[in-house]
């Protein structure tokens, strides 16, 4: 019983439509205490819809979603007072200073002034925003804005925090820094539920759910997910990857061919070898710089699951 009560988030058979669009189709997953759970998928996969239902801003058509053992739909006030939510769009007041935004959110959650001051000091330690206290929020950089939004959300020290694509549009260094903060929060016992469209951020999560068109394709730790990748994967470097991709796309020799930033990724059965690929490329008169067997990344796995 206590295990269920402590389960921060539990989603069962969640279903939501907007008109004719099935935004979320029978999604089930749960998030455990103190872990970083990442819901990863492209834009339009249904991530924001799930989050908004979770924070009681939207109602599900069917299914059940519970927060700390309580049904979200019936306990709106409890959810809103105890959850930390950082929406996808930057949602602080640009004409207020850093300090004023923090105070405002402290006040909203009825945090006594003395405690607010302590918490701000602690939050400034990791956000490094102390020198910008008096600056208007609208004049901060993208990375700083996200850190401030996170800090505002942490003013009431929620045990469970929900972040909708917090690193979207943020530069790589700030992204790294942001994830470090999430890591240390989780280490201190905070449960983190985060969504992202960046596949490479999967390795930073304790567990990952891959979502596509309202369906959860797989849920597991990043390592186990990558191990579930069947078949062998090859990378073909090419000067004209588009032409190569188009010509190889429907080749029956391969299970799948995908266009990546670093070339073409080819998935095949166990019988496929580097030489077989080279021969096929030469037969089709396609130029290539190198062919090598590689370990699958999350994006490879995602694409293979997506096509099933």
């Amino acid at each position: 019983m206590t295990a269920i009560m402590n389960q921060p988030i539990r989603v069962e058979n969640l279903y939501k439509t907007y008109g004719d669009v099935n935004a979320v189709k029978k999604v089930s997953f749960s998030v455990n205490e103190g872990e970083i759970f990442g819901l990863i998928g492209p834009d339009g996969a249904g991530k924001t819809t799930i989050i908004r239902i979770l924070v009681s801003l939207l109602r599900a058509d069917s299914g059940r979603i519970s927060f700390k053992g309580r049904d979200v739909a019936g306990n709106t006030a409890f959810v809103r007072a105890n959850i930390g939510y950082m929406p996808q769009r930057f949602s602080l007041y640009p004409d207020l200073t850093v300090d004023e935004n923090l105070n405002f959110f402290g006040d909203l959650f009825r945090i006594p002034k003395a405690i607010q001051i302590q918490r701000k000091e602690r939050l400034f330690e990791f956000s490094k925003l102390a020198p910008f206290k008096k600056r208007r929020t609208g004049q901060l950089s993208g990375g700083m804005k996200q850190k401030l939004a996170l800090s505002c959300m942490l003013m009431h020290e929620p045990q469970v925090i929900i972040l909708d694509e917090p690193t979207f549009g943020v530069d790589p260094i700030s992204r790294e820094e942001f994830w470090c903060i999430l890591k240390s929060l989780a280490q201190n016992g905070t449960t983190v539920f985060v969504t992202t469209a960046y596949m490479d951020e999967a390795r930073l999560c304790d567990r990952v759910g891959l979502i596509f068109e309202g369906d959860v394709l797989a849920i597991d730790t990043p390592d186990k997910l990558l191990k579930s990748f069947t078949g062998s994967l090859y990378r073909v470097g090419s000067a004209s990857p588009h032409t190569a991709y188009e010509k190889l796309q429907n080749n029956p020799m391969f299970v799948s061919v995908d266009l990546f930033g670093d070339g073409i990724h080819i998935t095949g059965d166990q019988a496929l070898t580097v030489n077989k690929i080279k021969n096929e490329m030469e037969r089709l008169a396609l130029s290539y710089s190198a062919v090598s067997k590689i370990h699958p990344e999350m994006e490879d796995l995602f694409l293979s699951l997506m096509k099933k």
Binding site: L57, R80, A81, P87, L108
Partner: peptide
């Protein structure tokens, strides 16, 4: 979008 943020509070 600030309404979305302040609605999720007490």
């Amino acid at each position: 979008g600030t309404m979305e943020q302040i609605l999720v509070s007490p």
